[in-house]
Design a protein around this nucleic acid. Structure first.
Lengths: 346, 346
DNA sequence: TTGTATGCGTTATCAG
DNA sequence: CTGATAACGCATACAA
């Protein structure tokens, strides 16, 4: 469709009666070209609507200055914050981004990886989909020494950097906090144990229980996709439990909120009957009533760190191979949803 | 960094003692190549870890099968829904996406446009930033006949397709609804009038007032960036108004929610003292209490329609030039936040 | 069905 | 400071 003859350096060269070599140099502001000719060339380029051809350029230079980003979903506050962080440093370092979402499907993740691979991204930043259970689709990158950084939803893989928070510790703190408020029957809503962040959070939850001599109950662990709707569905399950749990810890604020809203609708009081704690410090946590106790998770910073490390590796400034894991700080934010509530009769 | 010699069709050809032409054909499953050699080549390609070089390919074919998407922000429910819709059809048509966010800055929007231009996207889908006040940065696309589709935050431009809802009508309905609930002092929180969607909504608001013989008051129109924080700030302004307004219509649910929460904190009852209506039907509208009356806005469908039209144009199946504007359906969803409330004493 | 030859627009090397 | 020229990897017109 896009007609309109493209202007090339040949056209510029011909018009000015100089060589394409000089034009090429001038266009990248190479100081070896005289200031005057540089100006002349830039002006003509502007005038004729010249645009550099990245394909020819990349074909020649064998690099793309492009970083691929694969995330499970774009539409979470957390993820878009991370991406903003990535953009922040990538942009300032002259890298472009190709962003793609797997929609939590291993299938789509594989397709995205393939696309990125063929697009010759210089490096890849990945947060894994729920149902990804092999990293084979990244083998091609490894084999070609294309650096790979996992963030948030990470997985151990030789030569790949992992960036995450201490999920176990965060979950431990949240659970311990609930217990300290007098809660003992604590339901935990989480996502698939395929993703080790959820495994770690479960460990933290379990350890907190154990440390307080509370028996772990398998039936108190609810697996869901952590969506707001899933929260509502979980609420239905919780309502059926007898005795009623006195606290719910959810691995994601959105899901926590969906659950809270549904429980409230059925007359359960929060935190009086059931206390709540979430994860991520999504803005919605300050909208729901009562405001949700949660784990503050530094998304923007995580994006920056991921991009920074990848780019440093690309520049040779530092290597990903030596560092294995970067743990970012996180913290428990206590709000009303985990108040002590009234004494419960069990 | 990425070392590891790349395999090319030359390597494959040499190994099999055939010409690169045959390899090239086989790789695209050209039926003109015998099934047997095709298989042989595919196997070897797999074995040697061959990957096609898109640059060489694009350089040769002069197309990229890539669509650029520029949006103000990724982190809104609405936008990510739109993007999901875009991905849905783009993916199924074999197009890749380059997504970039302007962060509401004309500056970044221009930079993104330039990048997209140099990346030779086949077409561009754009939702404009708040402070963009010229479309000159898209001239290059127009000049090269690269199709351009605006959605949601649109602007009239020759040869560009606009996809939006009837904002005036939606705002008219919301305002009329508030009036029908007995409200008369209706504050309107909106974004910059640089974006005509907001102008249109303002028109709808004004027209509804006029039709009900309510005088329009300039001081009832609050301009903000429609963030949740801006909502809280607007709440401070509203609290100072005397007499207190009895309704607030907000051009965005997030902002509405921020405003509601802040007002409630200062003891104002909703909808008793002040009724609320928002815009977008963001999930948060069902979390806030009381649930927020809002305009349902078909984001996913908008994304699909935008991508579909762009791709049809690229295929020559239909042209963007003949269609100027596509209006999608929207609807008012009435919830508790706009209930009649108690009788107000003004 | 396969092969030959050429050009796509750059960058970089080597001579001037 | 500038110019000539050779890749980069692929797709395709034309020949066989």
């Amino acid at each position: 469709m896009s007609t309109g003859k493209e202007i090339t350096i040949y056209d510029l060269a011909r018009k000015l009666n100089i060589s394409i070599a000089t034009v090429s140099r001038a266009l990248k502001d190479d100081p070896v070209v005289s200031k005057k000719t540089r100006k002349k060339i830039a002006d003509l380029a502007e005038e004729m609507g010249y645009r550099s051809n990245n394909f020819a350029r990349n074909l020649r230079t064998q690099r793309t200055d492009t970083i691929g980003v694969i995330v499970p979903r774009l539409n979470s506050y957390f993820m878009s914050t991370v991406i903003a962080g990535i953009e922040n440093v990538a942009g300032s370092e002259g890298y472009n981004l190709i962003i793609s979402q797997s929609s939590e499907s291993a299938q789509k993740e594989m397709a995205s990886a393939k696309t990125m691979f063929n697009s010759r991204v210089d490096g890849l930043l990945v947060s894994l989909a729920y149902d990804t259970d092999t990293l084979r689709h990244f083998d091609a990158f490894i084999k070609k020494n294309i650096p790979l950084v996992f963030f948030d939803r990470v997985e151990e893989h030789a030569n790949c950097l992992n960036i995450l928070i201490n999920n176990k510790k965060a979950a431990y703190e949240a659970t311990t906090h609930l217990i300290s408020q007098g809660r003992r029957r604590i339901v935990y809503i989480t996502a698939t144990p395929k993703r080790n962040v959820y495994v770690h959070r479960l460990e933290g939850y379990k350890e907190a229980l154990a440390d307080q001599k509370i028996a772990f109950r398998e039936d108190y662990v609810l697996i869901s996709n952590l969506s707001q709707e899933a929260g509502a569905e979980a609420a239905a399950v919780i309502r059926q439990m007898d005795p009623l749990p006195d606290a719910v810890f959810v691995a994601n604020d959105n899901c926590a909120v969906g659950c809270m809203v549904a429980l409230k609708q059925s007359g359960i009081r929060i935190p009086d009957d059931i206390a709540f704690a979430g994860f991520n410090n999504d803005p919605v946590s300050t909208v729901v009533e009562p405001n949700l106790t949660t784990i503050n998770y530094p998304g923007y910073e995580m994006g920056q760190v991921a991009a920074r490390n990848l780019i440093n590796h690309l520049n040779g400034a530092s290597s990903i191979d030596t560092t294995n894991t970067i743990i970012l700080r996180s913290e428990l934010i206590i709000r009303e949803s985990s108040g002590p509530g009234r004494k419960n009769i069990s």
